[in-house]
Amino acid sequence: MKKKYIFWVIIALAAVTIPLFSGPYQMSVLRTVLTYAALAVSWDMLIRSGQLSFGIAGFFGLGTYISAMCSIYLNMPGIPAIIIGGIITCLIAMALGTIILRLRGMYFAITTLALGEIFRIIIRNGGEFTGGPEGLIIKKLVFDGGTIPTYYLALGILLVAVGASIYFQKSRFHLALTTIRNNERVAMTSGINIYKTLIIVFGITAGIQALAGASFAQMYGFVTPESSFSGDYTLLPLAMSLLGGMYGTWGPVVGAFLLGILSEYLKLYIPYGHLIIYGIIIVFVILVMPQGILGLLKKKFRKEAV
């Protein structure tokens, strides 16, 4: 218990003090990794119900645009614009969820992928209002684009995702989602309103993805249909969660750090080739260690304890 406490104190101290020891490049990499970690955790929160979503990029992109528009058209400062981006996307996801959460398995997964594309096409063809293919520029960056405060912003978004995920694991959502994943009939006859539960979880996870997107837009100051709705925002969090270990909070975070830092390293040596490495990692993890790195470690420690 004491060892665990010390471990978390060290992690917290490292997270808070790291800007003191890092240069702008490292901070920029960390900011990106933190954002991906938040996306990976939020994706994992929905997969705990058995629902596979490919809609991360769609909600991430929606968050970038809503927050950018709030800043440009309503002169809203960065932080409120980020929060509004998250809330509106959450509500949009819940409204869409009332229709698409009647689907299951691959039908649901493909529909979420299509949603992202629909959002992108609408925004691309939205004329001056959405900036069309050129996108929009936010003139005043959040915290004036400062490296250190924006690092803390990304850390804050990850903490929101981690907090929500831990709440899901400790609360009635844990029982509901795990039972739904196991067998929907049993869940229904246990008194679980599956439809309502999934709509809430879909809305919350989409909201977190949008918060990550909105903060990204406010940090970098521009949004375009291609960059905001990039397939990377769907593919990478999924690979990170698989690598770290699904159905928990810390697996996706560990996966995000490993894959995020690895991808930066790989980009230097094989530009764009890092995507091939992601593909290999996904296939390797599915075939050899479906429980992910954290799952393997837990298994090892459990065996040693026995």
């Binding site: 029982l175 795990t178 039972t179 994943r181 049993v186 246990s190 008194g191 679980i192 159905y247």
Partner: peptide, 13 residues
């Protein structure tokens, strides 16, 4: 539910 303990399985209802 394999991923829940016996106690948690019975808690659901």
């Amino acid at each position: 539910v394999e991923h829940l303990t016996v106690e948690e399985n019975v808690m659901v209802g």
